[in-house]
């Protein structure tokens, strides 16, 4: 499985999909987050592989 973390929420999703499809499965708008893997940013066409953790950084702030 792929682990996706957004603030305090942790999601598990099946591997082999692009980041874009994974986000849409989870109902997360790609416009509102940046995805990182081991601290490196990745683009939405990347395929997520089994066992990895993707950390999402929320980019939208108020005010």
């Amino acid at each position: 499985m792929v682990t996706i973390i957004l603030r305090r929420k942790v999601f598990e999703i099946r591997p082999g999909m692009t980041l874009l499809s994974s986000l849409s499965k989870l109902g997360i708008l790609p416009e509102s987050v940046l995805a990182t893997r081991n601290g490196d940013m990745l683009t939405e066409d990347e395929i997520l592989v089994d066992g990895e953790t993707i950390t999402l950084i929320e980019v939208i702030s108020g005010g």
Binding site: L29, S32, I57, E58, I60, S61, G62, G63
Partner: peptide, 17 residues
């Protein structure tokens, strides 16, 4: 990275969404 506590649920965040 922490949000201003008053901005949570604000209309500006809603409009951005």
């Amino acid at each position: 990275y922490e949000e201003c506590p008053y901005s949570i649920g604000s209309t500006s965040i809603y409009y951005k969404h």
